[in-house]
């Protein structure tokens, strides 16, 4: 393979250093997780093996353990419905899981739409399609609020009429109908209109799980950040690029405040792709705790920061 071409491809250096498998292990694990969760749900309708029934909105494991999506339950509450205990127990179990492991683990390890949007992003990179909308990444929180207000005003769960996330999962299990149109629209949106438009800008499901995992235990840490050689590979593959910088560089763009090595932003999906593509092994999965600054290891960054702060940087 041409060396210059390989160097331009994010993760190429990691593959050269660590081997293909080690440089893709979290991606493979994630695809494995997404597909096996889907397969678990399909075992019933395909082979009559009912380990789990229902879909991501609500399900029942082995006829005993209920699971319920807390977001749809919240919409139901806003719609004015008094809930049965089964759904509440199910939502508590699911919430506890994501509060511990990181809310947006749902997005990167469970959600079937992630496969669609990751494919779109892969094609986007492959065909060098550029262009990002100026739409704020906070738009998803506005949409999240709008879906709840919609439920409150109409008394129905309006968002579920068009929600691509539940529609894809339910469709694969119970029948798609015309739902492919919506899924295709999301695919085109991410491929042609704007980078990571759906998952990182618009999706209120992701926004909800992001809020759920604000204080999650499992986080990605950049403990070896002094090893960083600024190759930008992690930044290129990250679906939520803004979350890396504070932990990796130890400070914000226009601030002198030193920040610990934990990626604390709840928008981080814990996908682990940054771990994969980093040839210097800067990142690893760890706990949120012990997010202290080691002054000796960060002296380099702090010096950089002082150099920057003399000039005013306008965004």
């Amino acid at each position: 393979m041409n060396q210059t071409h390989a160097a331009r491809h994010p993760g190429a250096e990691a593959i050269a250093d660590k081997g293909w498998l080690a440089a893709n292990k979290w991606l493979l694990a994630r695809r494995g997780s997404q597909l096996s969760i889907l397969l678990l749900f399909m075992l019933g309708p395909w082979f009559g093996i009912w380990l789990i029934k229902g879909n991501l909105s609500s399900s029942l494991i082995l006829e005993t353990v209920p699971l319920t999506d807390p977001y749809i339950l919240l919409q139901s509450l806003f719609a004015g419905h008094t809930l049965e205990s089964t759904a509440i127990i199910g939502a508590l179990i699911v919430s506890a899981f994501y509060i511990l492991l990181g809310g947006r683990v749902y997005c990167s390890w469970v959600c079937p739409v992630n496969i669609i949007t990751d494919t779109a992003q892969w094609l986007r990179d492959h065909f060098k399609i550029t262009g990002a909308s100026s739409l704020s990444r906070n738009t998803r929180y506005w949409i999240l609020a709008a879906t709840l207000i919609l439920a409150l005003v109409t008394g129905g769960i309006g968002w579920e009429l068009v929600n691509p996330v539940s529609m894809l999962h339910r469709g694969l299990i119970f029948g798609m109908g015309l739902a492919w149109f919506i899924i295709f629209a999301v695919f085109l949106l991410d491929l042609l209109v704007s980078r990571r438009a759906w998952c990182s800008h618009l999706c209120p499901v992701g926004a909800f799980y992001s809020l759920l995992g604000t204080h999650s235990l499992i986080r990605i840490r950049a403990d070896a950040r002094d090893q960083c050689d600024d190759c930008m590979d992690c930044f290129k593959v990250c679906p939520e690029q803004q979350v890396i910088r504070p932990a990796l560089k130890g400070h914000l763009k226009d601030s002198t405040e030193i920040i610990g090595p934990v990626i604390t932003s709840s928008n981080c999906t814990n996908c682990g792709r940054c771990i994969d593509v980093c040839a210097k092994d800067v990142f690893h999965f760890g706990l949120r705790s012990n997010n202290t600054v080691n002054h000796t290891t960060n002296s380099k960054n702090i010096n950089k920061q002082h150099n920057h702060s003399s000039g005013v940087e306008v965004l």
Binding site: G54, G156, I157
Partner: peptide
């Protein structure tokens, strides 16, 4: 009207 605010579209009734 109430049904549309209560049903989470999980399909467990269909399964059973």
């Amino acid at each position: 009207d109430d049904f549309l605010g209560a049903c989470v579209r999980c399909g467990l009734c269909v399964r059973d």
